[in-house]
Nucleic acid binder design. Sequence first.
DNA 1: GGGTCACCAGTTTTT
DNA 2: CTGGTGACCC
Length: 681
Amino acid sequence: MFDLASLNPQQRDAVAHTEGPLLLLAGAGSGKTRVITCRIVYLLETRQIPAENILAVTFTNKAAREMRERVVEMVGKKATKGMTIATFHSLCVRILKSHIERLGYKKNFSIYSAADQQQLVRRLLRDEIADATGKDAERILWQISDAKNRLVTPSQFRSHSSDPTSCMTGLIYPRYQKELKAYNAVDFDDLLVLCVQLLEQHPDLLEHYQQLFRYQMVDEYQDTNPVQYRLLKLLAGGHGNLCVVGDDDQSIYGFRGADVETILNFERDFSGTRLIKLEQNYRSTGNILQAANAVIKHNRKRKEKALWTADGGGAPIDYLICDDDEHEACQVIERLHVERARHQLKYSDFAILYRTNSQSRAFEEQLRYADIPYVLIGGQQFFDRKEVKDVIAYLKVLVNPFDEVNLLRILNYPRRNIGASSADKLIRHSAEAEEPLWLVLKDSQQVAELTTRTHEAIGAFVELLERYRKKFQQPLRLSETLQELLSELKLAEEIYRQENDPQRARRRVENQEEVLNAMASYLERDPEPSLAGFLDKVSLLDDEGPQRNDKEKKLAQNAVTMMSLHSSKGLEFPVVFLVGMEEGFLPHKKSIYETFDIDEERRLCYVGITRAERQLVLLGAQRRRKYGKLEQRDPSRFLVEIPEDVLRRSSAGQPSASTPEQEQQSASNFFSGISQLLGDD
DNA sequence: GGGTCACCAGTTTTT
DNA sequence: CTGGTGACCC
């Protein structure tokens, strides 16, 4: 239950508009999530819509989880039963699980991770060019992904003749797709592409889902790319009960195929659209909003919006000009101490935001030196670690033995005397006989040129896999079976043997054990657990973020957050340090010289500014160590777009440049910084 | 198969 | 300056 009167007039309109297309332009901090959840509750309770007819799509698992939790909080768990709140990808997995056979795949298809994809493209590429590097494979994969996001099929792909990479892509893309299908595997982008194909080729299914999802909502609509758009258009066809929520000013994923035009054209695409703007901000101070509005106003292609707040102006925005990168990091630490003491804040009230992940290093060093706990978002993902991939590879093969990339990965890991040359012979035979590798292994006698010893090794390997495939059929014993598998494989021993640093070896073994924990918690959550189901969850990266065990979680509860501007979207912090406010970083130099898309950089800046609730501190260095040598840097062009009267400049490193007033300010900062260091908290 | 050395590149990346 | 990769050699 909820009270409509607790919403502002625009929010109320949005909640009550349930029939026909609705474009909800929700500025940063305008209570968007609240509106979506209230709208769902309104549909359920006031309009008496059955839960299973409601679909809410988000981009991240986290957003989906939070939305579900909030709805459950309001109406109880029972009332939400059957409702679909999912990411694009998990929605598509669900649809494909039921109907992918119509596209010629089998039900137990594998979802290829980035690493799996890379492996495959490398192999295909090496057949073409002997000296191709991993970087080439990466670029090709990028173009394939880009093509899929734009719904360009392998046969439609035409290379721009000038670019050698795209020539290669033209060659590799069709083969890549063919191999995937032979392996009964799909990649991330395929989840969406195949779903679109499925619905376009099978009107009965399309009609079924249109009827099922009679009320649809999409969050972060400004980030939809062409495939996602097509999918929505299909699903909403007929009834047109599609409510999209987004902010064109926060469209920052252009490089992944998202196009601002999509949200700007919504009204044209869906006739009879009702447009509602949410402009009242409940997050930031007036000064922060003034700065944000002033910056974003410089973008031409946008829907006019101006954030406002009923609260006061708050503290001015600080701009600290630093000498170099190290100085910038020290300034952040110093300021952090001051603010924490002055306003009794926790470390978790602070965030350090930057344009590129490599910028985090200087801050990490200083934070560690100052003994301040921090969490770094992004960077190497848990499921990308080699030892984790090895375990997952076994599980993937157990579910889908035609998954050749992973089959090859585990064929001789741990070592079992099936070396590279034997693998080569097997692959060649498989290609010539046009028989999947797995079947060749099962009947390896047909490969004449292998030694008896190799035949025996292969036989044992096949036996092992078949034995565990049976064992894993028992859903309630998944964890025990995995435990058994790990100890039979002696993977821990293998790691200790390979790794000469015992501490690192221990960490890697622990990481493997984390897979066990992940499986145990999956078992608890899923009412109908299966090995395949576990892998789906894992593939869709449904982990809890960077900290995975209780110890790490507890630590994170009081830690400074460090992350890229991209990852910060949707979050908020009392104090935000937006660092590297320089030409070359923000806007990034690639956008200045290559893509010329300064607008997207400005939106990125806007996202950063609007993360701050009470205090925003901008920093920039005059010189920066880059590739070894010191480089002169200019302040970001976005700084001059911020009105002078909300900005307090101070050149922390050069007292001569500051006014007496600012001198006093930085002196007092310094002083409280010192007393803080002496430990008066 | 593993270890060393030289070379290269160095934006963002919800799944 | 770094980290990561690939080539080459033992």
